Simulated scan of single mutants.
Amino acid sequence: MSLPSSTLVKAAPWALTALLFVLWELICVGFALPDYLLPAPTAVWASGQEFAGAIMQHATQTLLTTLAGFALAVAVGLALGLAVGASPLVYKACYPLLVGFNSIPKVAFVPVLVVWFGIGTAPAILTAFLISFFPVVVNVATGLATLEPELEDVLRSLGARRLDILFKVGLPRALPYFFASLKVAITLAFVGSVISETVASNLGIGYLMMSASSSMNMPLVFAGLMVIGVMGVVMYQLFALVERRLTGWAHRNPNAPH
């Protein structure tokens, strides 16, 4: 008796994850790999239990830092995306600068931020912001810029002003793009905060991983990686749920997997 397709879709990521962990364990055991080279999942789990208190403390710091940088990126990215998408002149003027800025590795900004703000939380928040605001800008601007010209002509013929078209038609039209960008931006924000924590912080998962690697405690390093991965997946799924709730009208099949 075959399982319903919806059940298979829901079970597929869990089954694949379990399979990868089993293969990982078998490789480590089969080749007798030492923990300092590649720890087995069981060793990573044991290390996570042993250092659960420290991991929780550092993970909380990383999560709060990431959310702060992400919130700043959403606010700035939404405002800038509205400006870029609503005005062809602003689009032409700003887009090359945004692309050039996004091409710069954000880790290069960390030493500058340390000089300006010192070691600690501020550089991590700003690095998370710098690395995650670009997808928001691009997606919001794309959603506004792709509004059908025929629709704009009809609305203008009915007496709609430019701001009416922007906020009552363009912005709702851009919502699917906006929420799609949030799922990308939140994962990038974790990357930014952890990068900064490894270089210029004394708290956070990045700092924990650097401290553990300096003492060759690779199970703890991998435990930190797992925690970051879990937090990223949870936040991604949260925004995917919000996207389905608020923009289901934009999808032909709202129940389709994302």
Rank of each mutant, 00 (worst) to 15 (best):
T65D: 04
Q57M: 10
V221K: 10
V138D: 06
N139A: 10
L67I: 14
I186E: 07
S196L: 07
L38T: 08
V22Q: 01
A68E: 13
N217S: 04
L26E: 11
A18M: 06
L158K: 09
Y207Q: 09
V115N: 12
F178K: 11
F109T: 05
L182C: 07
T142K: 12
F21E: 05
G81M: 10
L16T: 13
L97N: 06
T142I: 07
P254Y: 14
Y177K: 09
P123N: 06
K183Y: 02
R162D: 13
W14C: 05
G159S: 10
R156K: 15
M231R: 01
P105H: 13
L203N: 02
G206T: 04
E150A: 14
R162A: 12
V22K: 01
F101L: 15
L80A: 11
W45Y: 04
K10I: 11
A86L: 08
V221S: 11
F222M: 14
P88W: 01
V227G: 00
V29G: 08
T121K: 05
D35P: 04
V114G: 02
A43F: 00
E150T: 14
L33M: 12
S2T: 15
L72D: 02
L163T: 15
M210N: 15
A32K: 13
V242G: 09
C28T: 14
C94L: 14
G248E: 07
G159T: 10
L203R: 06
L38D: 06
W249Q: 11
A145G: 09
F167G: 02
V194N: 03
G204R: 00
M235V: 07
S196Q: 06
L78D: 08
G77N: 07
V99M: 07
E50S: 15
T17P: 00
G159R: 11
I104D: 08
L241A: 15
H58V: 00
G81C: 08
V9T: 15
V90E: 08
L241N: 13
G118Y: 06
T247R: 03
V233I: 14
V114L: 15
S201C: 07
V140C: 02
P254A: 09
A124H: 02
I165S: 09
I195F: 02
V22G: 00
T65Y: 00
A68K: 12
I195S: 06
V221T: 13
A71N: 05
V99E: 01
F70T: 06
A68M: 14
D35Q: 12
V169C: 11
L155T: 01
A52E: 00
V115H: 10
H251N: 03
L208K: 02
A59H: 00
F179P: 01
V114F: 05
V140S: 02
N202G: 11
P135L: 10
V140T: 06
V230G: 00
